[in-house]
Structure formats: structure tokens, C-alpha cells
């Protein structure tokens, strides 16, 4: 008998979860290489006897949109953007992590590091060490790191068969729980020096989604209110008959 209200509550819960995901997308509309997310809903069907069924709503998963963000040109020699599929590999204290944020720096021991200080790995999973002083650093489309005309290393680029299996950790990094894949750069993936990949969040879509969420939220509230009203009236009517 209370099922209408419970279905409504399941809907309100799912909607507020969805709102949180939209808020995170909008907050990260300017974050380097951020990938937008959306919530996937599914039915949760319960039998309530005599062949009747009630379907609740459940948020099953957050799905990442791995389409490419816009390229922003920064003019910084060690900023890299990946065009096409693939991730850079970082050696972090917690194990190997993957990222598409190519905002790299040169650390104090001349190693190429990420913004958080983690080593950037080359093809052989070794850190990339630059010479003490140099005039020019060029990174080719194929990932070769060329310092003053000499190739010193090749950046490692990894691609995953199923990118949804990656887990976002933080700071633009991903964790992969499966077996560690080989460093094989997909053929049509290219690196762009002096550019960064922007966030792929589509602000217009997110804003309209937000309006829809709010309306659906109000609608569900309305439904629960009417159900409440219906029960109140039913009780009045049955109450009178009982006298």
C-alpha cells in the first residue's frame, strides 16, 4: 500500500545522485583532460504478490564519456596532448596510474614528472631523464623525446580495450584493476607538443540536464503529495463507514 511513496523515494534518491554527477561535471568544465560522466539507471523489479510487480529505479553505474576534449595551446614545451585513444603512464607511490593530462614538468633531478610529482614513464616503463642544460626539447607526434637533435627516450602511451574498466582516482588519474597492459601506442594516436586537452564537458547539455533533473524532482514530489492526499481521503471515507 505504501509502494507509491517508496517508488517516489527511490526516484528522488536517484535524481539527487544524478544532480551530484552533473555538479561535478560543471565544476570540472575547465579541468585539463577531464572526462564527463553520466549516471546509468536501471529498473529494480519486485514482486508484491498476486502477479503484481513494482519497479523501483536504481542508479547502476556512472559511465565516463571518453570523447576527446578541445585542444588548448599553452606554448609550454613540456605540455602534451594526446590526439586519439591512449593514456600516459605515471609511476606513483600507489602503483602505476594512467592519465591524459600531459601538463608535465622537469623535476629537480631532471626527470620528467606530472603536476603531482609522479614520474612519467617511457616505452620501457623507465623514468625519462633530461640533460642538465639544453636549448630545445621537441616531442614528436610519435612520442620521441628529442633534446637538441638527439632522441633520448620514447614516451609510453597505453590504450585499453575497455576504457570503462578504468577507475577515476583523483587529479585526472585512473587506476586499472586488470592485468597491466603493454605499452603499445595505437597507430593513429598522435602527441601534440605545447597543447593540453581541455575538459570534454558540454556545458549546454549539462545545464539542460540540470533543469530536467529539477523538474523531475518536483514532479516526483508532486506525485508523493497526491498519494498522501489520496490516502488521507481514503482514511476519512473508510473511517466514516466503520462507524
Amino acid at each position: 500500500m505504501q509502494n507509491t511513496s517508496y517508488v517516489g523515494i527511490s526516484r528522488l534518491n536517484a535524481l539527487s545522485r544524478q544532480m551530484e554527477v552533473v555538479a561535478n561535471n560543471i565544476a570540472n568544465a575547465d579541468t585539463t583532460s577531464f572526462k564527463g560522466e553520466r549516471v546509468m539507471f536501471s529498473e529494480y523489479v519486485q514482486k508484491i504478490g498476486r502477479g503484481d510487480k513494482v519497479a523501483f529505479v536504481q542508479d547502476q553505474a556512472t559511465v565516463m564519456n571518453f570523447s576527446e576534449g578541445n585542444m588548448t595551446f599553452t606554448g609550454n614545451d613540456t605540455d602534451l596532448a594526446i590526439q586519439g585513444k591512449g593514456f600516459f603512464a605515471l609511476n606513483t607511490p600507489a602503483g602505476e596510474r594512467y592519465t591524459r593530462s600531459g601538463n608535465f614538468r622537469v623535476g629537480i633531478d631532471n626527470k620528467l614528472i606530472s603536476l603531482n610529482g609522479d614520474e612519467v614513464l617511457d616505452e620501457r616503463r623507465e623514468p625519462i631523464i633530461l640533460p642538465n642544460s639544453y636549448n630545445e626539447i621537441t616531442i614528436t607526434k610519435g612520442g620521441a623525446v628529442v633534446v637538441d637533435g638527439t632522441e633520448i627516450a620514447k614516451l609510453g602511451v597505453i590504450s585499453f580495450p575497455n576504457e570503462q574498466a578504468l577507475n577515476k582516482t583523483q587529479n585526472g588519474m585512473y587506476r586499472y584493476s586488470g592485468p597491466t597492459p603493454d605499452m603499445d601506442k595505437p597507430e593513429n594516436t598522435q602527441l601534440l607538443q605545447g597543447a593540453l586537452e581541455g575538459s570534454n564537458v558540454n556545458s549546454i547539455a549539462e545545464m539542460t540536464k540540470m533543469i530536467k533533473i529539477q523538474r523531475a524532482f518536483e514532479g516526483t514530489h508532486k506525485l508523493m503529495e497526491q498519494e498522501h492526499e489520496r490516502m488521507r481521503r481514503a482514511m476519512q471515507v473508510y473511517g466514516k463507514t466503520g462507524q
Binding site: V21, D30, T31, E37, A165
Partner: peptide
């Protein structure tokens, strides 16, 4: 493969 992950901002 994907669970529900909610980010908390920037």
C-alpha cells in the same frame, strides 16, 4: 565493469 563513482569537485 563500472560502479557508481561520484566526484566531489575541483
Amino acid at each position: 565493469p563500472a560502479g557508481v563513482q561520484i566526484g566531489v569537485g575541483v
